[in-house]
């Protein structure tokens, strides 16, 4: 399976059309255009983005579109090329092939970076500065008006739960607190796009919950979130759409609902039928016996009602029907195993 498309009208289809139209034409802006002038362009749009390190291909012809205002999960196992893609999007590394636009501007565009908040996977801040000083430094780098600094800083500290530690030096912070600070830094200036690279890697369960709330808050205020993670539970909780990347190649892109709804499992308890009756109903999915339950795997959820009808028509007494949606983890593993 080279690329899955789980739902009608998903980004995969749009990417293909955009790719034919050409990168800049698709984004509705020319290189160097200020993002504010191209408000209709997607937050992220790449066409055949490729990055090679010698003989190793880290990113292989990645085409994807992240719409404005959505939370986009970028999933993949360790070493899949996720962080390399982030670095390409932010201009920290140069592509060896293909191209992309971020907020309607070319990759790495300096002005576009004014509207991007970034929490890197490897996060460290100036250990001898206080948290407030680090945040003020980024306010200055963003060229925010001076009168807004204190409000921005206070709001960021409050959001990430560091208000009481604002005047402490970063060097005294735990790793988790530094990650919270990094998140606060990424939130400064109300960015249109927030790129979070493994944002909960150092956080405890409370911290992870807080991050989910922050991401939902960003979506509510209209920011786009590009969430790079290998923690599927994280993506399952907050993402509108996801892309699964493996060995530098996007193997699936689509909405989370479409991904998980495409195939499902249903558990049935049926009486009144003889042995082996399910062999006649193989068209609905793969059947197996589990104690007193019959389990149908790979069934299209829209056909469960048809299955029940078929059982009743054969004289069966349907005592229980329990649809079980596939977890993202199971789907993820399935996708990787299909390659």
């Amino acid at each position: 399976m080279s690329q899955a498309n789980w739902a009608e009208g998903t980004a995969v289809e749009r990417s293909a059309v955009d790719g034919e139209a050409g990168l800049h034409g698709a984004a509705g802006s020319s290189p160097g255009t200020r993002p504010s002038q191209s408000a209709v362009s997607p937050a992220i749009h790449t066409v055949a983005l490729t990055k090679r390190f010698g003989a190793t291909t880290a990113v292989n012809s990645l085409s994807m579109t992240v719409e404005r205002g959505e939370v986009f999960g970028f999933l993949g196992p360790n070493g899949a090329g996720k962080t390399t893609v982030v670095k390409l999007l932010l201009g920290l590394a140069r592509p060896t092939g293909g191209d992309g636009l971020v907020l309607g501007a070319p990759l790495g565009d300096r002005e576009a970076r004014r509207q991007i908040g970034y929490l890197p996977e490897l996060f460290r801040f100036q250990a001898l500065l206080t948290a407030r000083e680090v945040l003020r430094l980024h306010c200055r780098l963003l060229a925010l008006p001076k009168h807004a600094w204190e409000e921005e800083v206070g709001s960021a500290l409050l959001t990430v739960g560091l208000l009481k530690r604002g005047n402490d030096r970063v060097g005294t912070f735990s790793k988790g607190m530094q990650q919270r600070l990094g998140l606060g830094v990424a939130l400064l200036g109300t960015p249109a796009l927030v790129v979070l690279d493994e944002p909960t890697s150092a956080l405890d369960p409370v911290g992870r919950h807080d991050v989910r709330e922050i991401i939902r808050g960003l979506r509510d205020r209209g920011s786009t979130v590009f969430l790079n993670t290998h923690l599927l539970e994280e993506a399952e909780h907050v993402c509108d759409r996801v892309a699964v990347i493996d060995k530098g190649t996007a193997i699936a892109t689509g909405s989370l609902d479409a991904l998980l709804a495409r195939q499902s499992t249903v558990r049935l308890r049926v009486g009144g039928l003889g042995e082996g009756w399910w062999s006649e109903l193989g068209r609905f999915g793969r059947w197996r016996r589990q104690g007193e339950w019959n389990v149908v795997e790979g069934i299209d959820p829209s056909r469960i009602a048809d299955l029940v009808d078929a059982l009743v028509a054969r004289g069966g007494r349907v005592e229980a029907v329990i649809p079980e949606h596939q977890t993202l983890e199971a789907r993820f593993l399935e996708l990787l195993s299909e390659r």
């Binding site: 920290l92 970034y118 929490l119 490897l122 996060f123 460290r124 801040f125 100036q126 780098l141």
Partner: peptide, 11 residues
């Protein structure tokens, strides 16, 4: 250490 990563991604 990663200290520069958030700086160079600013405008």
């Amino acid at each position: 250490s990663g200290v520069l990563m958030t700086v160079v991604t600013r405008p």
